[in-house]
Amino acid sequence: MALAVELPDGFASLAERVAPLALAGERTLPVADEFAELFPERGLVRGRTIVCSGQAATSLALALVAPAVAAGSWLAAIDVPTIGLDAASEFGIALERMVAVRTGADREAGRAGRWSDVVAAAADGFDLLITRVPTDVSPTVLRKIATRLRQRGAVMLVLDDPGALSCDGVLDADITRWVGLGDGHGHLQQRQLVVEASGRRLPGRRCRLALPG
């Protein structure tokens, strides 16, 4: 006789997390429920490149990677020295699994070669990369990087302009309203976003969601 065991909520999510789910078609990293409907696979598929653009690009990128980092993946921020660590921590990113790399490609021309080397090396050891694409990288190099990411199963989130990089999807986040701040009183509490998904592997969906910060 099979016993029907009711697991408390916390255990259910834990059981889900430790369950083996490495089937080839399901090689995804988890995302928060609000974002799941933007992806047909309901998660970030390994090996893909996704552009985060719009007014809330950085927050969107941080919120997307947070559940995966919390579950044990490592995050490399390449040439994004301005990343707000308090915000990252509030989204649930475990900062002990976060590394920042500076290649100088965002400040000096002629360092694009180093940027591509660093991205390729980071793809070996990190599941998640957040970066900006330098303007002077050649399309050939970008194609090689995309191949490397696919081989290694790393997900790269590109902030703002991807240049010549061919991306699997674009998420554009615009702020429609801020909640909490008045005319000389209150403080920022929440913002309402419209996230628009487009691109080769993302269905053209739009969703409205509220994001803190």
Binding site: R97, V99, V101, R102, V118, A121, D124, G125, F126
Partner: peptide, 21 residues
């Protein structure tokens, strides 16, 4: 894997270019 990648990144750039919070 990440520890290996960090060592590799440090040789590609410089020790100070690879940082943790």
């Amino acid at each position: 894997q990440a520890a290996r990648a960090i060592a590799r990144l440090a040789t590609l750039t410089s020790d100070d270019a690879v940082t943790v919070p």
